[in-house]
Simulated scan of single mutants.
Amino acid sequence: MKTKPYLCLDDVKRIAAAAEAEALANQWAVSIAIVDDGGHLLWQQRLDGAAAISAQIAPAKARTAALGRRESKVYEDMINQGRTSFLSAPGLDGLLEGGVPVLVDGHCVGAVGVSGVKSIEDAQIAKAGIAALA
């Protein structure tokens, strides 16, 4: 039997605090979601002023990144390059940049999804959160 790392509550809180700090430092009103390796929600917060829809998009981006074990931007790029069949991929509905997997020792242990500003800025916030684990 093999073992693998996983996100514990302290890890999730560190990621969330760092992501929130990055968003607030840039005055970006966003929703932040953190999921485990199966895409199950571990944390979600919506900062003041964030659009209501961002609370649905952020966990979808995180789930897509966790299940695919890659940034959700990969799927957005494939679709934009004409591979529209990915729009029907089962279980993946956050096919926009802003979902970033959390990789530890070669294992995907979860992902962070952010929504509310430009997609590249969403990803910046997610990556800042993940960097808190280092």
Rank of each mutant, 00 (worst) to 15 (best):
Leu133Tyr: 07
Gln45Ser: 14
Lys4Leu: 07
Asp37Pro: 02
Asp122Tyr: 06
Gly49Arg: 05
Val12Asn: 09
Val30Leu: 06
Asp105Leu: 09
His107Trp: 12
Leu67Pro: 04
Val30Ala: 01
Ala65Phe: 08
Asp37Thr: 04
Leu103Ile: 14
Ser54Met: 07
Met78Asp: 12
Pro90Thr: 12
Ala29Gly: 00
Trp28Gln: 09
Gly91Trp: 04
Asp37Tyr: 15
Lys118Ala: 12
Ile57Phe: 03
Val102Met: 11
Gly106Asp: 02
Asp77Tyr: 03
Ala89Pro: 00
Leu96Glu: 10
Ser31Phe: 08
Thr64Leu: 06
Arg46Lys: 13
Gly106Thr: 07
Ile125Tyr: 01
Asp10Leu: 12
Pro59Phe: 04
Asn80Tyr: 05
Arg14Thr: 09
His40Lys: 14
Ala52Met: 14
Arg83Ser: 13
Ser119Arg: 13
Gly68Trp: 07
Asp77Arg: 10
Gln124Gly: 03
Ala89Asn: 05
Ser119Gln: 14
Ala128Ser: 12
Asp105Ala: 15
Gly49Tyr: 03
Ala66Trp: 01
Thr64Ile: 11
Ala23Gln: 00
Arg83Thr: 04
Gly82Cys: 07
Tyr6Thr: 13
Ala134Thr: 11
Ala132His: 09
Ala19Gly: 08
Gly39Leu: 05
Glu97Phe: 01
Tyr75Arg: 08
Gly98Asp: 04
Glu20Trp: 02
Ala128Arg: 09
Ser115Glu: 04
Leu9Ser: 15
Leu133Ala: 06
Ile120Asp: 14
Ala58Gln: 02
Ser54Leu: 09
Ala123Ser: 13
Pro90Gly: 09
Ala123His: 02
Ser115Leu: 02
Ala55Lys: 01
Val117Ile: 08
Ala16His: 08
His40Thr: 08
Ser115Thr: 10
Trp43Thr: 07
Ala17Met: 09
Met1Lys: 11
Asp77Asn: 07
Ala132Gly: 02
Cys108Thr: 12
Pro5Tyr: 07
Ser85Asp: 14
Pro90Asp: 15
Leu96Ala: 06
Thr64Met: 11
Asp93Tyr: 06
Lys127Asn: 13
Gly129Asn: 10
Val74Glu: 05
Ser72Leu: 11
Trp43His: 15
Gly68Phe: 10
Leu24Cys: 02
Phe86Met: 13
His40Asp: 13
Leu47His: 05
Ala21Asn: 15
Gln56Trp: 03
Leu9Gln: 13
His107Asp: 03
Gln81Ser: 13
Asn80Ala: 15
Pro59His: 09
Ala66Tyr: 03
Asn80Met: 11
Arg69Tyr: 06
Gly129Pro: 06
Met78Asn: 06
Ala55Phe: 05
Leu67Cys: 06
Gln45Gly: 11
Ala123Leu: 01
Leu67Tyr: 00
Ala62Val: 07
Thr64Asn: 02
Ala29Asp: 01
Ala62Trp: 00
Gly106His: 12
Gly99Thr: 10
Lys73Met: 09
Ser72Asn: 05
Ile15Asn: 05
Asn26His: 15
Arg70Thr: 14
Gly98Met: 07
Gly82Asn: 11
Leu95Pro: 01
Lys4Trp: 13
Leu9Thr: 05
Ile57Leu: 12
Gln56Ala: 15
Glu97His: 09
Val117Lys: 05
Glu76Leu: 09
Ala51Tyr: 02
Pro5Leu: 08
Lys61Ser: 03
Ala51Ile: 03
